[in-house]
Design a protein around this nucleic acid. Structure first.
Lengths: 141, 141
DNA sequence: ATATTGATTTATAATTATTACAGATATGGA
DNA sequence: TCCATATCTGTAATAATTATAAATCAATAT
């Protein structure tokens, strides 16, 4: 809690009650939630919360570099608090978005083919480990 | 034209007049167009075209593996006909989406960290070559 | 303590991309 | 030609996101 406030302040974001709670959910939850998931979770604690507030907070967080926005699902934006560089797998079976730790950077200022690269996002699509082993069990029975 | 029909047939897609024209635009245009761009372009030749037809055709193309769908812009889907594996740069200055030929595969059935990977998309964000040199000219004058 | 100022939150409306649907049209085979 | 089926069209529905304006909150000066 104390910690969350410091995180927000370190990014020059006013630590309002709503913002703290939204960040708390993102820090706890490594599931790459979308706005509705965050809103539903938040409603338990702050029943009067507005969805616009969630949008505003997340946009602010993203602008200040506190979270990463993922467009791996075409329908809606996903939000990721994790700071270590990594990529993402969308499992076509279970729909989960899973961190993938292949070598990569969020490289501030790389250069590739003459372009200046500030950000890299790798999206993988396929079948996750868990769904694979579930399939294997089925075929073996 | 003849060629386009063969391309469609090779993917088991009925080569209707509309589909041929939509594919023609995608083949000519390496700009990673969105639905509106395609629709506007197409309207010149087929003024009665419906936007739903464009959506349907592109969905069919994507299902059959004829085009790749890009979610690099959060607002709307982009479509890419290019078949050689490559990644994409979104230039924050000019908004263009540019092919980036770093080593990668659209790898059918790779395996990473126990997950089965069918598709990889790399999205880069930064400033493209052209915008960089434009900036340089400005600062030098 | 109170008033003031500015930022944040809320609720609602507007915007926009995409999909659903149903009728019209076109297509290919008997 | 006729029929069955696929495709196309136009409109309506859905859903994510943004715009907006009023209400609330927080901090500060008086």
């Amino acid at each position: 809690m104390e910690n969350l406030i410091k995180i927000l302040q370190s990014k020059n974001i006013q630590p309002s009650h709503q913002r703290i709670k939204i960040l708390e959910i993102l820090v706890k939850n490594k599931d790459h939630m979308n706005v509705n998931m965050i809103y539903d979770e938040l409603s338990k604690e702050i029943p009067t919360i507005s969805k616009t507030t969630v949008y505003n907070a997340l946009n602010t967080f993203a602008e200040k570099g506190l979270v990463h926005c993922l467009t791996i699902t075409p329908e809606e934006m996903r939000y990721d608090y994790e700071t270590k560089p990594h990529h993402h797998l969308l499992c076509k079976q279970c729909g989960r978005i899973i961190d993938v730790n292949v070598r990569c950077t969020y490289a501030e200022a790389m250069e590739i083919e003459g372009h200046s690269i500030e950000e890299i996002q790798g999206y993988f699509k396929g079948t996750c480990k868990d769904c694979l082993s579930r399939e294997n069990h089925k075929t073996k029975n």
